[in-house]
């Protein structure tokens, strides 16, 4: 008879297992989940220290911090999932200060009964996105809520980065005359998500554009260190982002509809859903505002980067006491591009 192996723990069943309350209890089951899943996927020297915090060297320059909670439905969608999205979203929020993202933290809220196979897929997708971005996840947390009190999985990520002295990118720096640029086609993420929503299943080849944009930002800052504003038009789309900047900077904007890049498939999906692509979310695009003399150089730098191939100048900043964002329509008239009111709802007839 052989003696039981010392320290043997039956591995987690990632095929058929589900999250249960013990995975968040602080006991052995939680330690095992951390070891076999999170640590295995995110592996780096800070996590290996097994502390409740990460001790990091102080970088040169100014610290940039951003946090974002991710609650997307469905969890998996064409072009990505909640895992990579939670890395991209926060990396981008840090990068939009003109900063270099350095570290991430991750907090998970799991719903009892959530399949471990799905959790593994999500965590591995997060790990891959973090490796691709070169931004390690250095500390984290897991909690479990009872069944019915969550929506599978919620992920909060916080990002820390550094921005060099002299780089002043901020939403309040748009000035009349400035050029407004976007890095590519708008609405891809939102339409990819909507194509899978309940009651709305339609076939599409559109994939989410979810991506980390910090290398594009670095190339842009390299070309034009004096770029005034950068922002990723996520929820609420381009329209919301431009209205935010107009209000922060105390100016108006004038856009040319014909210059705004939108994929025909996205335009078509929006058309039959009664939505406006300018209000649909993006997860891998940015808006840049710079002095008119820098616009050509900035556009060239964006187009030279794979994530900015479809970049375009779409309008200019103007003086306007009402802070209105206006647009010359492709049809030849003018209209406002207002804040989104409530949710985008489909038209009836």
């Amino acid at each position: 008879m052989t003696a039981p192996r010392k320290d043997y723990v039956r591995p987690i069943d990632f095929k058929r297992g589900v999250v249960d309350m013990s995975h968040g209890s602080g006991g052995r089951a939680m330690a095992q989940l951390i070891d076999e899943l999170f640590l295995a996927a995110f592996d780096n020297r800070w996590l290996r220290e097994m502390n409740d915090q990460a001790r990091l060297p102080m970088p040169q320059g100014r610290l940039v911090v951003a946090t974002d909670s991710h609650v997307v439905t469905p969890l998996f969608f064409p072009g990505g999932d909640i895992g990579c999205l939670s890395v991209h979203g926060t990396v981008n929020d840090v990068a939009m200060a003109g900063a270099k993202p350095l570290y991430l933290t991750a907090g998970f809220i799991l719903e009892e009964g959530f399949p471990l196979a799905d959790l593994k897929r999500i965590v591995e997708s997060m790990a891959k996105a973090a490796v691709e971005a070169g931004v390690p996840i250095v500390t984290g947390d897991t909690k479990v809520v009872e069944k019915g009190k969550g929506d599978g999985v919620f992920i909060n990520t916080t990002g820390v980065g550094v921005v060099a002295e002299g780089i002043e990118v901020s939403g309040d720096r748009a000035r009349p005359g400035d050029a407004i640029l976007v890095s590519g086609t708008l609405g891809d993420h939102g339409v990819a998500i909507m194509s899978l929503r309940e009651n709305l299943t339609f076939e599409t080849t559109i994939r989410s554009d979810t991506a980390s944009l910090h290398t594009l930002v670095a190339a842009m800052i390299d070309a034009v260190p004096t770029v005034h504003c950068l922002r990723d038009p996520t929820r609420g789309g381009l329209a919301t982002t431009l209205n935010e900047i107009a209000r922060q900077s105390g100016c108006g904007m004038r856009l040319e509809e014909a210059r705004i890049p939108v994929r025909p498939e996205v335009a078509a999906a929006c058309e039959f859903l009664g939505l406006d692509p300018l209000y649909v979310a993006n997860e891998g695009k940015l808006v840049a505002i710079c002095a008119p003399d820098d616009a050509d150089r900035l556009l060239a730098a964006m187009r030279a980067h794979p994530q900015g191939r479809d970049a375009a100048v779409i309008g200019e900043v103007v003086e306007d006491a009402h802070h209105f964002v206006q647009m010359r329509t492709g049809f030849g008239g003018s209209r406002m591009v207002d804040w989104l009111a409530g949710e985008q709802l489909p038209r009836i007839c």
Binding site: G274, H322, F324, Q326, R335, M336, D338, A341, G342, L345, R347, I348
Partner: peptide, 28 residues
């Protein structure tokens, strides 16, 4: 549109919502 009192401000096809959303710069 955020705090509609009447129905014309609710639907995107309503006269008030259409003017508020697309045209209010004309009357400002």
């Amino acid at each position: 549109p955020e705090t509609p009192m009447g129905s014309c401000m609710v639907s995107s096809e309503g006269a008030c919502a259409a003017h508020y959303t697309y045209g209010r710069y004309r009357s400002a």
